[in-house]
């Protein structure tokens, strides 16, 4: 059961993140069942699968937003699913972006981006603002620095949310269906950023419904069904020659043509 995530032939060394036999239940409902996953530095893992297959729950478990019911999560070889681990220690190194942006409406874009660097990472206001302005400019948000989030379009808000996560310079970025709430025409501007991040070697795990995007940027695609990783591998393999019948059914439904 545990060797699902191991890819023989890869160079040795501790993976950045290792998930073994993860289980999560809500009451009687099993949401994640024996999920195993290995993430190495510079990997881009795309989680695909229909709604309710457990993608979001998996990400929430990895960020310790949920207690797991069994299994082990290791970050850099250290078990973080141990109750004695301070979740904040983990979240200093792991960034997360949500489907609904979850920006703080009472803070300007700049203050949204400097809050954690200043209060958690101990940067001075000047350093934090410099870093935030840099990143905001890189992602085409230089004009919106002093606005409040609700003044921006959905795409802009989601880009700000990404920058906010990046300002902490995370080792690992978790993206939870970050384009699902956006108009189709706004999806592109957000995915462009994610693509750039992938090219720069940012390690990411993303739950997504954008299949062509997953095919293009992912190093590994995981197909989840009913709380299990039914199949995982390089995108070329999953999208062109899926092993499982259920993967085939799912892809037939979501892929055009």
């Amino acid at each position: 059961m545990t060797d699902l995530g191991k890819k023989p032939g890869q160079p040795a060394g501790t993976p950045l993140l290792e998930v073994v036999g993860l289980r999560k239940t809500y009451g009687d409902r099993v949401v994640l069942d024996d999920v195993s996953l290995t993430v190495r530095r510079h990997d881009v893992i795309c989680l695909i699968g229909s709604s309710g297959s457990g993608k979001s729950t998996l990400l929430r478990c990895l960020d310790l937003l949920e207690d797991v019911d069994d299994g082990v999560i290791r970050l850099d070889g250290r078990e973080i699913s141990d109750p004695r681990v301070d979740p904040r220690e983990v979240r200093r190194r792991v960034g997360m972006v949500f489907q609904a942006y979850n920006l703080f409406p009472h803070l300007s874009v700049l203050d949204n981006c400097t809050l954690s660097p200043r209060r958690v990472h101990g940067l001075s206001r000047r350093e934090a603002e410099e870093r935030a302005r840099d990143l905001l400019a890189t992602f085409g948000l230089a004009d919106h620095v002093d606005k409040h989030p609700d003044r921006l379009s959905g795409g802009q808000q989601q880009r700000v949310a990404l920058v906010r996560a990046l300002c902490n310079r995370p080792d690992l970025l978790l993206l939870d269906e970050i384009t699902a709430a956006l108009d189709p025409e706004l999806v592109g501007e957000v995915l462009t950023i994610v693509r750039e991040l992938a090219e720069r070697g940012t390690t990411m795990i993303l739950a997504t419904h954008e299949m062509s995007f997953a095919r293009e940027v992912a190093t590994t695609v995981c197909f989840l069904s009913e709380g299990r990783i039914l199949e995982q591998g390089p995108p070329a393999e999953i999208f062109s020659a899926p092993r499982e019948e259920r993967t085939r059914q799912f892809l037939r439904r979501v892929l055009p043509g």
Partner: peptide
């Protein structure tokens, strides 16, 4: 499913 050894330890903690 029955809890693994690690999970039982965790519950203890």
């Amino acid at each position: 499913w029955s809890p693994s050894k690690r999970e039982r330890e965790r519950r203890g903690i």
